[in-house]
Amino acid sequence: MSDHVQKPIIFEEDHLPPATIGGSTLTFLILAGLACMATLIGFTDLGPAKVWVSLAVACVQGIVLTVFFMDLRHGDKLTWLTAVAALFWTFLLFLFTITDYLTRQFFAF
């Protein structure tokens, strides 16, 4: 027990209190509402637009989850950097691979 003062907890520095119960409840309600929306969309036939709409909802949900539940809004620089890096590099992976599938049938000659 006595050593816990000396040992720095360096994996996450957090100077701010965690979200209040009210705050968490609100976040949860928003997320649940969005989930309802996703389900509704799932049960209607929107044709090709469906995938875009449902992905948009999922993205909003994801952002709410990371920013509020995962407390990204109070994150330090390194946290933001990692979050952005993750998105950016996933984007790179998609960019080139999907480009291949979209352009493979074009010939240069």
Partner: peptide, 22 residues
């Protein structure tokens, strides 16, 4: 370094335009 991996696949059948970009 993450933008060039396709240079290992020039002759594999990946899109020719993508090959040029790579």
């Amino acid at each position: 370094g993450f933008l060039v991996w396709g240079h290992h696949m020039f002759l594999s059948g990946q899109g020719i335009y993508l090959g040029m970009v790579f």
